[in-house]
């Protein structure tokens, strides 16, 4: 049978970090399981060298459309043009705001399945491609398939997959697409003012080897400050559960859990975190989890490697000595 086309939609404007590398690596793995062909659909303005790098992660082909405007409607038309011509069985997008909109437009236009914020994708003989995402407020992961759908599309959560340079040497074919539609910008709106905000860089969290987590059990600012101080001493990033972020102790980018980030440090120390499943989902891939809580029955101890039953405030005072 024909090879399955597994697409990774790559946005040249946003391609600086390893996010698309993660997707291409996953696509490569899936292609081996499903007799697929990895095609990177690269939109934007980039160099030949950058396109060639896709081979490192396992791409078979790059379809490149040079484009100087980053606009969801325009990219939808370009993707539609390419899709109508070469087809796809699976389309993977990052879960950036732009990609979320683009993928929604695409899924709606072609009436195909779209799974949001995937944390895993696999290929099974009986089910085909299975997409996994966190289910609502639970310790479970929903497994989703597409039905009656010409292709399966998804947005992928950052760091769900690992960027992996492949062992084999791949022959990469680069195809320059020639979109013949217009590149006119939308005149139904007018930007009155625009203030650039500092883009919240999450590199510190992505690369942190040691992370300290703060939960509801950290009851006062003094304890919180001591934890932050200790964090500086050990070069640890301090994160929090949803409650702590909602209370304003930490900014949203440091929220770890189902509706926040997922992290996988070498050591994670949970201070005063009870262990609600929504938070555990975000830390479960940590190499070693140390939990400090004054309730010996706290659910966090179910996934901790090291259990410390102690009052957090007392503990942190000793710990900071």
């Amino acid at each position: 049978m024909d090879k399955r086309n597994i697409w990774v939609v790559c946005d040249a404007f946003d391609h600086v970090d390893s996010f698309t590398g993660q997707l291409i690596s996953k696509a490569y793995q899936l292609s081996k399981e499903s007799n697929g062909c990895v095609q990177v659909i690269f939109l934007g303005d980039t160099s030949e060298d950058e396109l060639k790098r896709c081979a490192l992660y396992g791409a078979d082909e790059v379809v490149y459309q040079h484009c100087e405007t980053k606009d969801e409607r325009l990219w939808l038309d370009i993707l539609s043009d390419i899709y109508s011509s070469i087809g796809a069985d699976v389309i993977m997008f990052t879960n950036s705001d732009f990609s979320k909109t683009l993928s929604s437009f695409f899924a709606s236009r072609f009436e195909v399945g779209l799974t949001a914020d995937c944390i895993d994708i696999c290929f099974e003989d009986e089910n085909g491609f299975v997409f996994e995402r966190a289910a609502m407020s639970d310790s479970v992961q929903a497994r989703i398939i597409c039905i009656d759908s010409q292709c399966c599309t998804c947005t992928v959560k950052k760091n769900a997959f690992v960027e992996n340079v492949i062992n084999e040497v791949k022959e990469l074919s680069i195809r320059k697409w020639d979109y013949k539609g217009s590149f006119n910008t939308d005149d139904t709106y007018e930007v009155i003012s625009c203030v650039k905000r500092e883009i919240e860089n999450s590199a510190d969290l992505d690369n942190a080897k040691i992370v300290f987590g703060v939960g509801r059990g950290v009851k006062d600012k003094e304890t919180f400050d001591l934890i932050c101080q200790a964090g500086k001493k050990y070069n640890a990033v301090v994160v929090g559960t949803k409650c702590v972020v909602d209370d304003g102790l930490l900014p949203k980018k440091y929220q770890v859990g189902q509706s926040g980030r997922s992290i996988a440090p070498d050591i994670y120390i949970a201070f005063g975190i009870s262990g609600a499943n929504q938070h555990l989902v975000g830390i479960r891939n940590s190499r070693q989890i140390i939990a400090v809580n004054n309730n010996e029955n706290a659910p966090i101890f179910n996934i901790a490697d090291v259990k410390i039953v102690a009052d957090v405030k007392e503990f942190i005072k000793e710990f900071s000595e």
Binding site: L114, N127, I144, R284, N302
Partner: peptide, 27 residues
């Protein structure tokens, strides 16, 4: 166009080692 076929538990329980002793020893 999508359907949830099943759900899997992702929080795998571990055996944890409890550290005893005084607060100082734990720290």
């Amino acid at each position: 166009k999508t359907k949830v076929i099943n759900s899997v538990n992702i929080i795998y329980k571990k055996e944890s080692i409890e550290v005893g002793g005084s607060i100082k020893e734990k720290a």
